[in-house]
Design a protein around this nucleic acid. Structure first.
Lengths: 147, 147
DNA sequence: GGTATTTACATTCCATGCTATATAAATGAG
DNA sequence: CTCATTTATATAGCATGGAATGTAAATACC
């Protein structure tokens, strides 16, 4: 066939949906002084504070230069603070500021709200199924990706 | 709860998956001189050539400034050519170049290949279900989005 | 112990996407 | 016809993300 219906392309739909998620979340958390790209890192630090860049990369699915830039913006915005590591002078550890800890609850509530909005009208079983299918698809593309 | 497991967040997973799709496709079509952001516009023009920016926006799920930039890059890369509209001097129509038409088949084949890779191990019914769930989720976020 | 390699980050460059705003042509109101 | 409004793009500014590459500290090897 010489054409490709975008409505039936997973790549197209997933990309579109991803941007809808980002925009919806952005509008919610902007008043808190946080942007979407910072969320994964914040969530990771909420679970365990004082991680290094390397440790964060293992938790956040993003390339190293992307995280480095994100951390710079987060430091600029007063969300994290870096302390150079005594053991390894190449590395530093990132700690949440009070400002970041203060907004932990509303931030997580915002993320939950967007997720809840997204699954409006979904049966519990459908949510589980969707999560399962997405996870399998991620697995397929990760395996096929890194040659 | 004070934490939010990223593995169970739809926004997180969809965002990650979207980037995996983009990267996989990019590697495939880079040799053809095309990048992912140009694909939706190319597919739209394959279906109907000579569309205006306004008409493209109705087909590609992207904001107007994003499309304007994409079209500039596509013109720079020799994929499209713009002709000012006689009826409306504010507008111009975009036509595929021979270079673009020449790679139509491999481009569409590439997109299909990535989609096929993504659904490896999926039953036909699962693919339909996933498409349905994604479409419903998109609907939820679009409705909830534009207040 | 000194050199080669690896590792942890930083930097550069670019594409994609959004918001906000500017601009010029088309359209509508009177 | 004239002025106000709308419409089609353009532009500016920024965030996010990736590839490629540079750099300095840590480690491995002789």
């Amino acid at each position: 066939m010489s054409k490709l219906p975008r409505r039936e392309s997973f790549g197209y739909q997933v990309n579109h949906l991803g941007r809808l998620f980002a925009r919806a979340l952005d509008r919610k958390i902007q008043p808190l002084g946080v942007s979407t790209g910072q969320m994964p890192t914040l969530l990771a630090l909420f679970e365990q504070d004082g991680l290094s860049q390397k440790e964060l990369i293992a938790r956040v699915q993003v390339e190293q230069p992307t995280l480095a830039n994100t951390l710079n913006r987060m430091e600029r915005d007063g969300l994290v603070q870096r302390e150079s590591d005594d053991q390894d002078k190449r590395s530093s550890r990132f700690f949440l500021t009070e400002k970041a800890r203060d907004i932990q609850s509303p931030l997580i509530a915002s993320a939950r709200a967007i997720n809840a909005l997204a699954v409006t009208g979904f049966a519990e079983q459908e949510q589980q199924q969707l999560l399962d299918l997405l996870t399998r698809m991620i697995g397929n593309l990760q395996t096929g990706g890194h040659t």
